[in-house]
Nucleic acid binder design. Sequence first.
DNA 1: AATATAATGCAACATAGTTGCAATAAAAAA
DNA 2: TTTTTTATTGCAACTATGTTGCATTATATT
Lengths: 126, 126
Amino acid sequence: MGIIRKTKSVKTLLNEFNKNSSAISVTELITRLNSKFNKTTIYRVLDKLEDDGVLHSFLGKNGLKWYAKCNGCTADNHSDVHPHFQCLDCGKVDCLSINITLPKIPNRKIDLAQFLIQGQCDECLT
Amino acid sequence: MGIIRKTKSVKTLLNEFNKNSSAISVTELITRLNSKFNKTTIYRVLDKLEDDGVLHSFLGKNGLKWYAKCNGCTADNHSDVHPHFQCLDCGKVDCLSINITLPKIPNRKIDLAQFLIQGQCDECLT
DNA sequence: AATATAATGCAACATAGTTGCAATAAAAAA
DNA sequence: TTTTTTATTGCAACTATGTTGCATTATATT
Ligand SMILES: [Mn+2]
Ligand SMILES: [Mn+2]
Ligand SMILES: [Zn+2]
Ligand SMILES: [Zn+2]
């Protein structure tokens, strides 16, 4: 079930994601909003925003959970099958709007795929 | 640093991986060998076997750590950049010997990539 | 303003993984 | 074979991420 009431925590979290287009890890959000909201609230709001098709989640380095804004998703129609890029220098994570071609695998049904690419981002390269 | 002494735990763990070619999660190994070895030992031996190029590790569903046998790797030359497939029905994880073509990303340097595909395995399909 | 209930905070819990240190066991030396 | 060296182990305590139940609070509706 998604979000029903526009509470302070919902507005604050949405605001964090509107600052720029980068993904944000849950631990980073908890650190940032530590004084304002309980971590349980943050986990729950993020979960609902994902249900609503506002955010999508994925696992970054070390299996940490990250969230990023969706692009034209709705509650019934999520389509966030794109690779993610994590910079090993600064830690920043971005969604890559690249069409990844899933390999054909005999005798197996593919439901979903997650692709995490690691290296150095544009800013850290120079 | 890798393995120096062929201890019971080393032999036992290698034996687990020689039963078949599937990957094994650390938690599964801890459960299996619970009565014989401490979990700390298991974590440490796996870590060393990876250093030696005997096993390689990756993250499966929920960010859990999995290990699988390497194929012709040495301590100085690991090359385990292949996709992994996890069955959502039985949980089994396999290495896919498929050559994945990394997408070209402008202004970024790619160091490594992990590709986890989820769905149904051959056995669970029928 | 009164009501219904979604959302929150808190404490307690679950699980994966790590660390320091004393005790043990494998390999080398005697 | 016995002694010595030190790599490895077990244990307990810890860190970190994430979850759950329940009483309290805040939002939206009447
Ligand atoms: Mn994304
Ligand atoms: Mn593999
Ligand atoms: Zn960077
Ligand atoms: Zn299966």
